[in-house]
Simulated scan of single mutants.
Amino acid sequence: MDCRLGCGACCIAPSITTAIPGMPKGKPAGKRCIQLNAENLCKLFGLPERPDVCHLFAATIDVCGKTDKEAIWLITDLEAATS
């Protein structure tokens, strides 16, 4: 599955415990990453400053669903189940 450009669910729903430029302590679940632009695209995509956890994320139907709204719901549910 290819990532749906402009979705942004993976940059909003999960917690990220590693440093992100502008967010040195990472980000809590449900908080929008500071590096997510107005079009829901990562400003760090392809740059070495992008956290490994973000670089390693792969869009799959079971995590991202069929819509952006479903992706937020699924990733939020996964976050709650693994916290």
Rank of each mutant, 00 (worst) to 15 (best):
L36G: 11
L41P: 03
G8I: 03
E79P: 03
G46A: 01
A38V: 13
C64N: 00
A13E: 15
G22R: 02
I12G: 03
G6S: 02
C10K: 05
T60E: 02
C64K: 00
G46D: 04
T60I: 01
L5Y: 12
A29K: 10
K43F: 00
A80D: 13
C54E: 07
C11Y: 09
W73K: 09
P14G: 10
S15E: 15
C33R: 13
C7W: 00
A58K: 07
D52F: 14
P14W: 08
K69L: 08
C33I: 14
D62A: 08
D2A: 03
A71M: 04
L44H: 11
T76R: 05
C11R: 01
E39D: 15
A71E: 01
P24S: 02
D2W: 04
T82A: 10
V53M: 12
L78D: 02
L44Y: 11
A29T: 14
I61C: 00
G22H: 11
G26K: 04
R4W: 03
A13W: 08
K66F: 04
E79T: 15
P51E: 06
A29D: 12
I20S: 00
G6P: 07
F57P: 01
N40T: 04
S83K: 15
P48A: 06
D62M: 08
T60N: 05
K66L: 10
I61N: 07
L36R: 08
I34G: 15
I72G: 00
T60S: 03
M23C: 02
E49K: 14
L36F: 12
G30R: 09
E70D: 09
T17Q: 14
T82M: 10
G8F: 07
L78I: 05
A80I: 11
F45W: 15
C7Y: 02
W73F: 10
T17V: 12
T17E: 15
L74E: 03
D62R: 13
D68I: 00
R4A: 11
M1V: 12
L44T: 14
R4G: 05
A29H: 06
I72C: 03
K31Y: 13
P21M: 02
E70Q: 09
G26S: 07
T82G: 12
T82I: 09
R4Y: 11
A59N: 08
E79W: 04
K25I: 05
D77M: 06
E70C: 01
D62T: 05
A38Q: 14
K66R: 10
L44D: 04
P21V: 01
A71I: 01
I75L: 14
